[in-house]
Design a protein around this nucleic acid. Structure first.
Lengths: 156, 156
DNA sequence: CGCTGGACGTTATAACATTACGTAGCCGAG
DNA sequence: CTCGGCTACGTAATGTTATAACGTCCAGCG
């Protein structure tokens, strides 16, 4: 009871919408962070660090590290998420993530789209297990691979 | 109803114990597969493909691909599991895995040990979500990072 | 035999991620 | 102000993880 309530804090951002910028979720991002987040927001699916880099060459980015550093900060703050099974990144499902507490990702093998979901029951099951076992969780990864509704419907 | 009951088939092996060999879970493994599985079984924690390779140089393995090919087969059959968040592999929790239907992994950041767990409730929650959303799952990844009971108890 | 399919071995290369080092700006303590 | 600590940045080099593209060997089978 005394401790952390949930596994993932994520997305605790005071979301400003700021005239004059393109993608602003938080107003204290550095230039590189904004560029990277913008690239993710623009994309229709997950991007690898190197894909992000390629898209930002024209904006002055030159080295992987610039991207990785930005991604570290963004994921720390829950503005972006890493998909472990893909070695790729998505931007957080905007306003929704901090309301629902993003928890898992459903990745379509067919169209590449990623859906973020939150089933509170899952979180509870995990909490129950961790209490029973004594394991103290810190972060978690839940990723489903399969076919999204559209693709499953369209092409078997 | 009509289709697959569960997300992960895994570990449906007719487990022989075979005199004269060291680690035999299934009797139709190739030499490389046996070597790789043996390395995983011997280890106290997860191993990367390259760590496996290093441990098997004396047995004649020379190239990453030999290890990756063996790992592919082993994971297909559920004899080994890939930890996505670690880019590493563990051998399946022996006899238990096919009884309980291994589902998730708790990875201790402190001692590196990995615990395989199965909370049926989690599986059900995921199934419920996928039904509601129309997503058709194929494989899933559930990984917790944190501290195991021993490490959490010992050193805060 | 001749075909097919699976595992194998080898070399090269692609893709992902970090280390190491130096610079520049911000800010609070002295 | 100026020094020290902190954070972000830029660049080059390197480390780690994974696959592509070849050709070979061998067992099963018509």
């Amino acid at each position: 009871m005394g401790g952390k309530e949930d596994f993932q804090a994520g997305c605790m951002i005071d979301t400003h919408t700021h005239e004059g910028h393109d993608h602003v979720w938080a107003d204290d991002l550095t230039r590189n962070q904004e560029l990277v987040l913008g690239a993710l927001a623009h994309a229709t699916g997950p991007l690898s660090a190197y894909e992000i880099l390629d898209r930002l060459r024209d904006d002055g980015l030159r080295a992987p590290l610039q991207v990785y550093r930005a991604l570290d900060k963004l994921t720390e703050r829950g503005l972006a998420h890493r998909l472990e099974s893909l070695n790729a990144f998505v931007c957080c499902a905007d306003a929704d993530c901090h309301r629902t507490g993003g928890i898992g990702f459903a990745i379509c093998e067919s169209c590449g789209r990623v859906e973020e979901f939150a089933e509170p029951a899952i979180r509870q099951s995990l909490r129950r297990w961790s209490k029973a076992s004594g394991f103290v969780p810190d972060r978690m990864t839940i990723e489903l691979r399969g076919r999204c509704a559209d693709c499953a419907g369209a092409a078997g």
